[in-house]
Simulated assay, not measured.
Amino acid sequence: MTRHSSKRDLGVFPHAELPVAVAAVIEAIEMDIIRGHILPSTRLIEDHLMEDYDAKRHVVRAALVELQRLGVVVKPPHLGARIRRFDAQSLEALYHFRAVLHRAAVESIALPVPGERLHAVRAAADAHALAASSGDLIAIHRANMAFHRLFFGLCDNPYIEESIRLHDWLSFPARAYAITDQTALSTACAEHAQMVEALEQRDRLRLLDLALGHMLQARRIYEGKYLSR
């Protein structure tokens, strides 16, 4: 099977290009997580996934391997593949580390940002806002991650960039539910625009506040759904 990625996946997945069939199953699983059809700790049974997504077993297995590599799927001993679920302690630890990474990235951004790179970040913010208005959930998810990749990539530290990218994926099972929340989505679009504005104004303190606060709404939604019961 020819290995290539769809155009809207380019620069978003932190992994090598995948066969189209495998990428399609991954996208289908992502969509079902976003929609709440697959919940945290849900067991992912190969036979069910093959039927649900009309995919061959080796394709489903490859998709699960990739999602496990990204941290979206976990495989506890003797329990099979499951969607990652965060308890209060692990969620706190994850968001603490994401805050450390985001702070390090923003503090490393050289201001002023060159015009061409600033334009690319602004275009990514606009693309996310356009996706948000379209209602295409996967497009919203991809555009959001693409914005983060370009924004935090301004730090020009490949180790920080890669760590942020990987933890964006690791946190996906917690962040996913904000994608269908219209208030959270509108806030995210507004914050992206404010981050671009702060870059233009060379306001590092505001950038720090925005980058750290940007994560909190999705976290609160997850806590409300799964940690307040």
Rank of each mutant, 00 (worst) to 15 (best):
26 I>R: 02
10 L>F: 15
187 T>F: 09
9 D>I: 05
20 V>S: 07
189 C>R: 02
132 A>W: 04
124 A>C: 08
66 E>H: 14
210 L>V: 01
118 L>K: 04
17 E>T: 10
164 I>S: 00
6 S>T: 14
212 L>K: 01
149 R>A: 14
115 G>F: 02
199 L>I: 11
51 E>T: 11
228 S>C: 14
74 V>P: 04
201 Q>V: 07
195 M>W: 06
84 R>L: 00
47 D>R: 14
174 A>R: 01
217 Q>P: 08
214 H>E: 07
168 D>V: 03
61 R>L: 00
57 R>S: 14
32 D>G: 11
39 L>K: 13
171 S>Q: 07
184 A>Q: 08
7 K>Q: 14
174 A>V: 05
219 R>M: 06
181 D>M: 07
188 A>T: 10
76 P>S: 01
73 V>N: 00
99 A>Q: 01
113 V>D: 04
80 G>E: 08
170 L>Q: 02
34 I>D: 13
141 H>C: 09
157 N>P: 09
51 E>G: 12
38 I>Y: 13
140 I>G: 03
57 R>K: 10
41 S>K: 08
124 A>I: 01
96 H>A: 12
65 V>L: 15
226 Y>G: 08
193 A>N: 12
222 Y>M: 09
169 W>C: 02
120 A>D: 13
24 A>K: 05
123 A>C: 11
30 E>F: 07
116 E>C: 01
89 Q>D: 13
191 E>K: 10
219 R>P: 05
92 E>F: 10
61 R>T: 05
36 G>N: 12
41 S>W: 00
139 A>V: 11
151 F>T: 08
96 H>K: 11
87 D>H: 00
50 M>I: 07
143 A>F: 06
1 M>K: 12
214 H>L: 09
129 A>L: 00
